[in-house]
Design a protein around this nucleic acid. Sequence first.
DNA 1: TAACTTACAGACAGGCTGTATGTAAATGGC
DNA 2: GCCATTTACATACAGCCTGTCTGTAAGTTA
Lengths: 195, 195
Amino acid sequence: MARTNRERTETTRLALIEAARALFVGQGYGDTSTPEIATAAGVTRGALYHHFVDKRDLFRQVLQREGEAVAADIEAVTPDRLSPREALLEGSRAYLDAMMVPGRTRLLLIDGPAVLGTAELQALDDATSARTLRQGLEQAGAGRGEVALDALAPLLAAAFDRAALAIDAGADAAETRAAMAWLLERTLKGANPDE
Amino acid sequence: MARTNRERTETTRLALIEAARALFVGQGYGDTSTPEIATAAGVTRGALYHHFVDKRDLFRQVLQREGEAVAADIEAVTPDRLSPREALLEGSRAYLDAMMVPGRTRLLLIDGPAVLGTAELQALDDATSARTLRQGLEQAGAGRGEVALDALAPLLAAAFDRAALAIDAGADAAETRAAMAWLLERTLKGANPDE
DNA sequence: TAACTTACAGACAGGCTGTATGTAAATGGC
DNA sequence: GCCATTTACATACAGCCTGTCTGTAAGTTA
């Protein structure tokens, strides 16, 4: 079983990231130990600390993957040919769908900000879903001339996050989605889609 | 200096809670140790574990106080004689003001959910600011007949939280407050204040 | 005033994090 | 194709932290 170094690295890193993800989701970051993670991944702590700076770094990489997956799901349903309004609606639905993958709300919305800090999480968000929302709102002409989009967009993003959290916590999914759609519609009301 | 037991207890508990608050705010829950807290409070860990079940319990009590303070500030500016709409506007402003007390956003919005879990934090919120918002929206007739208020209210609450967080993080306070007010206004548009 | 309870201090037992050291396998130059 | 070097790990270690247990002085109650 001769394996190239790159293969070994890739295998080990992936095993650690997936094992860590499962444990972080199940017990939270604070209650998950590196011995646990290493054991679950089938390696020793030596391997973990060889590939990751520390426990937080491993957590960061788990979140990176998660954020990218969400962003990919959104982009998949919002091709350029859609009108801004349609793209916004479709993207919104895709976001909530994507956040239903088990553990995502906890990782990205609960433990993430606490462990990495709001600044770093914000940066991760901006690189993925938050920016597409801001762009969508801008192109749809939301709040034009009445309110600063840079201030409004994060508020709506927070509402989306909370919607995902609520559904995850057992709230009526249909009602929650409807409420979010209603809020978005109210935001867009009176905005003309193109200049 | 003969002190009654009740006095001693009260003094020690308060010292621990205030010392813990300062450290939790400054370094976060995870990076704050009980030896640090005890030293800062001028007692030993023995006292801490005598008065609190564990570190989380101490954190919970810190948050309890914090939540009550926010709720008190809101109630102070929303006497019953105000119209539902006025009360909602005043309460909103008071909420954002209250959240500007240093450390509150971190305690209540970042570390709180991660350490105590969303369920417990939700309960604390419901007992304080979240319920007044829900009542305010209901009395103002928000979304009447179009959307479930139980689903809508949390989304707006989340937007408020995010507004506080953004301002705390250095965003333009006036713009952010204006955006929040705009969102609230849009939500209320078309709702007649009384049946 | 004597029995009992409360408020704490100090010691102790695991467990965890990050680092340092050692080793086998892979890689790269000659 | 061989040797020097780097990479990928495993193991051992030091320091800190959490929660518990034990002991003691002060306050409370009968």
